[in-house]
Design a protein around this nucleic acid. Structure first.
Length: 288
DNA sequence: AGTCCGAGCAGTCTTTATAG
DNA sequence: CTATAAAGACTGCTCGGACT
């Protein structure tokens, strides 16, 4: 919820930033964490700075990543652990103790005749890699310790900022994603199948090696957006926040099918025991 | 010893071109 | 519309020399 609050005041942070002159992702992340700090202050959270962490490793003590591949980081992380704010009612609105945010910053320099960005393939691949990271790499210690009916206490967010309409950065054959970026609906379903069709070739390889064995289904996302009313207006900025409420990631390797599912009621399920760890290790080793 | 400044370097980002 | 390569531009960093 705190992420949504911060997002709601993001245009104010961005307006002061001089967005058009910003050229690096870190600046966008910085603007967002500034909004976050504001949101935390407004909630009277004690010692808000301590709760905010940038470049948070996905690898944790309870849920380590494979040796040598533990350098994967998430852009923004907020931990409410220890506070007594959480409740079942709040959780039903997407409130979680731990919050991971991947942020993407897109700038368009060149467009093809039809208006697509010339680097749409690269950008699409990076965005999908971020979404896969959020589903696969976020630590779920209860799956590691082999607990009965494991649950997640983590929310996953994807934030994207751009200086041109978002959809021009997405390859058109990635239909769900392209449509969502053009016209975000409150409730969205995004299927990204890297194992078939046009995406299965060089594109999947760009996301990660052998990623044509992966299929990602974001079965329910809640989206928030700030799009300019007049797209032609100078110095416009497009902002989109996607909260992943439920998702399923499937890995088909050598005839063995593994799957990991995050359900809407916070419960986690695996196709077979150990699938979560197998998929997570695979992703962390092979992702670009 | 401390400060300043520019050259050189490595890495990243942008732009352009070409081909499928 | 997509994919890829490569040139060119830019950035942050280090290091050594000139100067105080």
């Amino acid at each position: 919820m705190i992420i949504e609050s911060a997002f709601s005041i993001l245009p104010e942070s961005i307006a002061g930033l001089g967005f058009q002159r910003v050229s690096r992702e870190a600046n966008a992340v910085g603007a967002f964490s500034f909004s976050l700090l504001n949101a935390l202050h407004s909630k009277n959270v004690i010692d808000p700075i301590q709760r905010l962490q940038l470049e948070k490793p996905y690898s944790t003590k309870m849920a380590p990543l494979p040796e040598g591949k533990d350098a994967r980081h998430c852009d923004v992380f907020i931990d409410y652990g220890g506070s007594k704010i959480g409740s079942k009612q709040l959780a039903n609105y997407g409130w979680r103790y731990r919050n991971y945010v991947e942020a993407k910053f897109l700038k368009s320099y060149n467009r093809t005749k039809s208006g697509q960005d010339t680097r749409a393939s690269t950008n699409s691949a990076e965005i999908i890699a971020d979404l896969i990271r959020l589903v696969a790499l976020v630590p779920e210690p209860e799956c590691f310790t082999g607990r009965q009916s494991p649950q997640t206490s983590t929310a996953r967010y994807f934030l994207v900022l751009s200086d041109y309409p978002l959809f021009i950065f997405i390859n058109q054959y990635l239909k769900d994603l392209h449509e969502l970026f053009e016209n975000p609906s409150k409730r969205a379903q995004i299927t990204i199948d890297l194992s078939s069709g046009k995406a299965a070739g060089a594109f999947a390889e760009k996301v990660g090696s052998n990623f044509n064995m992966l299929k990602l289904e974001l079965t329910q996302c809640t989206c928030f957006s700030h799009f300019p009313l007049d797209a032609k207006c100078k110095d416009s900025c497009w902002m989109l926040l996607i909260r992943i409420d439920s998702a399923k990631l499937t890995l088909n390797a050598n005839g063995v099918s593994r799957s990991f599912t995050i359900n809407i009621d916070r419960s986690l399920s695996e196709g077979n025991k150990g699938d979560y760890k197998a998929i997570r290790d695979f992703v962390s080793i092979n992702i670009q």
